[in-house]
């Protein structure tokens, strides 16, 4: 499994500590904002900008080094392993929220709706607190938390979004084939299509959210249904944004003539990330919208 070319070891890394400082400032600012402090938003903004600038400079450095041929095959493998396991960690992050959804639907709601559903000592919650509550999904709980709402159907915008993302997965792969076959035109066209579909997806989701909040009464505060719906689709939407931005950078670099069939880790990493986002969406479509 090991490979043994000369290994490129960078000798000074200025950006990591700066990016960390920016991130810390941003999070401290966010925490201050949540606590109602007036300096919060400013800190957040400064921290976020610092983080962005540092990341930008760091990635610029990496791409310059890559284009000047400093990375051997072995370095490329290290990078790919890094990306692969990073995506795995993201899968586990989404797993926590999918797990919460599964638990709510299969354990906590049936438990609250029927005292006979489980034999544990907590069964009296239903009898004493909410004897009228019935376990029907979707629900905002026995307390009707967040008021009346309408559940999001699967075959409106969500279905269109599914098609958009699936198509973008195809165009991304088409672009990759273009890169491997040295057809730069195909590479660029494929990437333009992928990025456009990605941003179109985000736009559709923004419309969906707008309708949920303003016409359906469905908000983040609509009990466990609203919580799981918005947290799952929201984190996914955030990842689509990040993925689309990454692919935009790749598109920009492709325009500048970067990447060869042998050396294009950044493209592969972005494509992997995009497919990961795609797969998570399929999970969402099935478990959040369909079932």
């Amino acid at each position: 499994m090991s490979t043994h070319d000369a290994y490129y070891i960078p000798h000074k890394a200025v950006w990591p500590i700066m990016a960390t400082a920016g991130l810390m400032l941003m999070l401290a600012g966010f925490a201050n904002y949540l606590n109602g402090s007036s300096i919060g938003p400013g800190m957040m903004l400064v921290g976020f900008l610092a983080f962005l600038v540092m990341l930008g400079l760091w990635f610029t450095l990496q791409s310059k080094e890559s284009e000047s041929g400093m990375y051997s095959h072995q370095v490329g493998i290290s990078y790919r392993m890094g990306m692969m396991w990073f995506i795995y960690s993201e899968v586990m992050f989404f797993g926590a929220f999918f797990g919460a959804l599964w638990y709510a639907r299969n354990i906590s709601i049936p438990h609250l709706g029927d005292s006979g559903a489980f034999s544990g000592p907590g069964r009296s919650t239903h009898d004493i607190l909410w004897p009228a509550f019935q376990a029907i999904w979707p629900t905002n709980g026995p307390g009707n938390v967040g008021g009346d709402y309408e559940a999001m159907g699967a075959f409106g915008l969500p279905f269109i979004n599914t098609m958009l993302l699936l198509t973008s997965g195809v165009t991304c792969t088409w672009a990759h084939h273009g890169l491997l076959a040295k057809k730069r035109d195909q590479l660029i066209k494929g990437l333009i299509a992928t990025v456009s579909l990605g941003f179109l997806f985000v736009t559709c989701q923004a419309i969906e959210y707008y309708e949920a909040y303003h016409e359906m009464g469905l908000t983040l505060g609509s009990g466990i249904y609203g919580s799981t719906f918005f947290m799952l689709t929201g984190f996914h939407g955030f990842h689509v944004c990040v993925g689309a931005i990454i692919l935009s950078v790749i598109l920009f670099r492709s325009w500048r003539g970067h990447f060869t069939p042998e050396n294009h880790f950044a493209f592969e990493a972005a494509a992997w990330y995009w497919h990961f986002v795609d797969v998570v969406w399929l999970g969402l479509f099935v478990f959040v919208y369909l079932l």
């Binding site: 926590a96 797990g99 307390g143 967040g146 249904y225 919580s227 918005f230």
Partner: peptide, 19 residues
């Protein structure tokens, strides 16, 4: 305002313990 760990909204504090 989410209700992950609030029984009134259909959540469960025990869910947190599992995660």
């Amino acid at each position: 305002d989410t209700s992950f760990f609030d029984a009134a909204g259909g959540g469960d504090p025990v869910l947190y313990q599992h995660i």
